[in-house]
């Protein structure tokens, strides 16, 4: 092979690169979504582990509740739950609007989801403040704050992602190459919701 041949090869390579770059871009969103789903499945095992730990503690600990604690208030968290769960429907509506290329509709419902998520976090903060036990109040306090806190962190991450997607919606031709970011954020939000439902049943309903 001479250097001229090499140069020619290089040129061909460039061309084929461009050709495949287009193919790949088409594929990339699919790959990303696939990878994201795998990641969520994996992430769910952390929650499953915490749930398993919670169940073991709950069923085996003799003095489950710390002294002076009667149980958990269910009413406020139930309202919170309703809001968080309904936000899953709202985010779905937002996604439909984006699908129909109605950006303002998308932004409105997207912002509404963020507001509902933020309200959930606010409600949780209020609840935490009113509680008589802390993180280090025995196994009960530990698991309670660990589960709600770890979940809250996910809600917070979800809101952050939503914020990024909202800002992106104001940049021009942002969704030309597919809406992976929005779809992934939305999927993440549903995931966080499902986790919360299990968590709510475990911690608040099963007392």
């Amino acid at each position: 092979m001479t250097s001229i041949d090499r140069a020619l090869d290089q040129e061909q390579l460039e061309q084929s690169k461009q050709a495949t770059a287009q193919e790949n871009e088409h594929d990339e969103a699919g790959n990303s979504m696939f990878g994201f789903v795998i990641f969520l499945l994996s992430e769910s095992v952390i929650f499953l582990s915490f749930f398993a730990g919670f169940i073991v503690y709950k069923t085996t600990t003799s003095d489950w509740l710390p002294p002076g604690v009667e149980g958990l208030e269910v009413r406020e968290p139930a309202i919170n739950t309703v809001i968080l769960v309904s936000s899953s429907f709202v985010i779905y509506i937002a996604e439909r609007y984006l699908h129909d290329k109605n950006l303002w509709g998308f932004r409105f419902f997207w912002l509404l989801t963020m507001a509902m998520g933020s309200y959930f976090l606010y409600g949780q903060a209020v609840e935490w403040q009113s509680l008589k036990f802390g993180f280090s109040s025995g196994v009960f306090g530990g698991t309670f704050y660990l589960l709600t806190g770890f979940h809250g962190l996910h809600v917070f991450t979800g809101i952050l992602l939503q914020g990024i997607m909202l800002i992106r919606s104001f940049l021009s031709d942002n969704y030309e190459n597919g809406q992976f970011g929005v779809e992934a954020t939305s999927l993440f939000w549903h995931f966080v919701d499902v986790i919360w439902i299990i968590l709510f049943v475990l911690i608040y309903v099963w007392q």
Binding site: I38, L41, S42, E43, S44, V45, I46, L48, S49, F50, G53, F135, G142, L146, F150
Partner: peptide
């Protein structure tokens, strides 16, 4: 790795706490 590691992570987080 995908189904196993998160369990260790959960344990490590609790141990860290």
């Amino acid at each position: 790795q995908l189904f196993g590691l998160p369990a260790l992570t959960a344990g490590a987080v609790m141990l860290l706490c």
